[in-house]
Computed example of a mutant assay.
Amino acid sequence: MQTGCTQHNYRAELIPNGNADRAARVNKLFEGKSSSRESKYGRIIYGGGVNVGDLLLATTAVNVEVDLFGLRAPRRIITFFDAENRTWAETMGAIRSSFVADGPVTLVLERES
Protein backbone atom coordinates (compact mmCIF):
# COMPACT_ATOMS: atom_id res chain seq x y z
CA MET A 1 0.00 0.00 0.00
CA GLN A 2 1.33 3.43 -0.92
CA THR A 3 -0.22 6.67 0.15
CA GLY A 4 -0.54 10.26 -0.89
CA CYS A 5 -0.14 12.88 1.82
CA THR A 6 -2.87 15.33 2.80
CA GLN A 7 -1.58 17.39 5.76
CA HIS A 8 -0.05 14.28 7.35
CA ASN A 9 -3.19 12.24 6.72
CA TYR A 10 -2.54 9.42 4.31
CA ARG A 11 -4.81 8.24 1.49
CA ALA A 12 -4.34 4.77 0.08
CA GLU A 13 -3.02 3.98 -3.36
CA LEU A 14 -2.77 0.25 -3.94
CA ILE A 15 0.39 -1.18 -5.51
CA PRO A 16 -0.69 -3.51 -8.33
CA ASN A 17 -0.53 -7.13 -7.08
CA GLY A 18 0.65 -5.95 -3.64
CA ASN A 19 -0.82 -7.41 -0.44
CA ALA A 20 -3.46 -4.68 -0.05
CA ASP A 21 -4.46 -4.91 -3.74
CA ARG A 22 -4.87 -8.70 -3.56
CA ALA A 23 -6.84 -8.42 -0.30
CA ALA A 24 -9.11 -5.76 -1.83
CA ARG A 25 -9.83 -8.00 -4.86
CA VAL A 26 -10.64 -10.97 -2.62
CA ASN A 27 -12.81 -8.75 -0.44
CA LYS A 28 -14.84 -7.64 -3.49
CA LEU A 29 -15.84 -11.27 -4.00
CA PHE A 30 -17.57 -11.14 -0.63
CA GLU A 31 -18.91 -7.58 -0.94
CA GLY A 32 -22.09 -7.15 1.10
CA LYS A 33 -21.38 -10.33 3.07
CA SER A 34 -18.78 -8.93 5.49
CA SER A 35 -20.01 -8.22 8.98
CA SER A 36 -20.70 -4.57 9.65
CA ARG A 37 -22.70 -2.34 11.95
CA GLU A 38 -23.82 1.26 12.09
CA SER A 39 -22.40 3.61 14.71
CA LYS A 40 -22.64 7.31 15.38
CA TYR A 41 -19.43 7.65 13.32
CA GLY A 42 -20.81 5.82 10.27
CA ARG A 43 -20.73 2.24 9.10
CA ILE A 44 -18.07 0.04 10.69
CA ILE A 45 -16.90 -2.84 8.50
CA TYR A 46 -15.10 -5.81 10.02
CA GLY A 47 -12.72 -7.70 7.76
CA GLY A 48 -13.00 -5.15 4.96
CA GLY A 49 -10.26 -4.40 2.48
CA VAL A 50 -8.40 -1.18 1.75
CA ASN A 51 -9.71 0.82 -1.19
CA VAL A 52 -7.98 3.52 -3.20
CA GLY A 53 -8.66 6.87 -1.52
CA ASP A 54 -9.25 5.49 1.99
CA LEU A 55 -7.93 7.82 4.69
CA LEU A 56 -5.79 6.10 7.34
CA LEU A 57 -6.83 7.33 10.79
CA ALA A 58 -5.23 4.77 13.10
CA THR A 59 -3.63 1.34 13.31
CA THR A 60 -2.58 -1.17 15.90
CA ALA A 61 1.08 -1.22 16.89
CA VAL A 62 3.15 -3.41 19.18
CA ASN A 63 5.40 -2.13 21.94
CA VAL A 64 7.78 -4.18 24.04
CA GLU A 65 7.76 -3.60 27.79
CA VAL A 66 11.07 -4.45 29.43
CA ASP A 67 11.69 -4.65 33.17
CA LEU A 68 14.97 -2.80 33.71
CA PHE A 69 15.74 -4.85 36.83
CA GLY A 70 15.24 -8.18 35.05
CA LEU A 71 12.55 -9.41 37.44
CA ARG A 72 10.02 -10.02 34.65
CA ALA A 73 10.45 -11.28 31.12
CA PRO A 74 9.86 -8.71 28.36
CA ARG A 75 6.30 -8.71 27.06
CA ARG A 76 4.67 -7.50 23.87
CA ILE A 77 1.78 -5.07 24.23
CA ILE A 78 -0.60 -4.28 21.38
CA THR A 79 -1.51 -0.59 21.41
CA PHE A 80 -3.61 1.82 19.35
CA PHE A 81 -1.57 4.25 17.20
CA ASP A 82 -3.29 7.48 16.13
CA ALA A 83 -1.99 8.13 12.60
CA GLU A 84 -3.47 11.60 12.18
CA ASN A 85 -0.83 14.34 11.95
CA ARG A 86 2.01 11.79 12.15
CA THR A 87 4.83 11.43 9.65
CA TRP A 88 4.85 8.63 7.10
CA ALA A 89 7.90 7.10 8.83
CA GLU A 90 6.14 7.06 12.23
CA THR A 91 2.99 5.53 10.76
CA MET A 92 4.83 2.82 8.81
CA GLY A 93 6.97 2.10 11.89
CA ALA A 94 3.81 1.45 13.89
CA ILE A 95 2.45 -0.90 11.23
CA ARG A 96 5.81 -2.71 10.89
CA SER A 97 6.09 -3.17 14.66
CA SER A 98 3.67 -6.11 14.47
CA PHE A 99 4.74 -9.67 13.80
CA VAL A 100 2.59 -12.47 12.48
CA ALA A 101 2.52 -13.92 16.01
CA ASP A 102 0.89 -10.72 17.29
CA GLY A 103 -2.24 -11.40 15.24
CA PRO A 104 -3.77 -9.25 12.52
CA VAL A 105 -2.97 -5.58 12.12
CA THR A 106 -6.11 -3.47 12.45
CA LEU A 107 -6.44 -0.35 10.30
CA VAL A 108 -9.02 2.34 11.01
CA LEU A 109 -9.93 3.90 7.68
CA GLU A 110 -12.28 6.65 6.64
CA ARG A 111 -13.97 6.07 3.30
CA GLU A 112 -16.11 8.42 1.28
CA SER A 113 -19.52 6.86 0.67
Rank of each mutant, 00 (worst) to 15 (best):
T60Y: 02
K28C: 08
E38I: 12
G70C: 05
E112Q: 11
N9Q: 13
G42F: 06
T91K: 00
D54W: 06
S36P: 01
Y41R: 13
V100C: 02
R11L: 10
K33I: 12
P74S: 01
W88V: 11
R37G: 11
Y10L: 08
E13F: 09
L55G: 02
P104G: 04
Y46P: 04
L71M: 15
L68D: 14
L14A: 01
A24C: 10
L57M: 08
W88Q: 14
V64D: 08
I95R: 04
T6W: 08
L56S: 01
E84A: 08
L107A: 03
R76E: 05
R75C: 10
L71S: 13
W88A: 15
R43G: 01
R76T: 01
N19Q: 10
C5G: 11
R111K: 04
L56P: 00
P74R: 05
G18A: 06
K33C: 14
G48T: 04
F30H: 07
V52W: 04
G32N: 07
V64T: 15
V64W: 04
M1W: 07
Q2W: 07
Q2E: 15
R25L: 05
V62Q: 08
L14E: 04
Y41V: 09
D82W: 02
K28R: 14
R11F: 08
T91I: 09
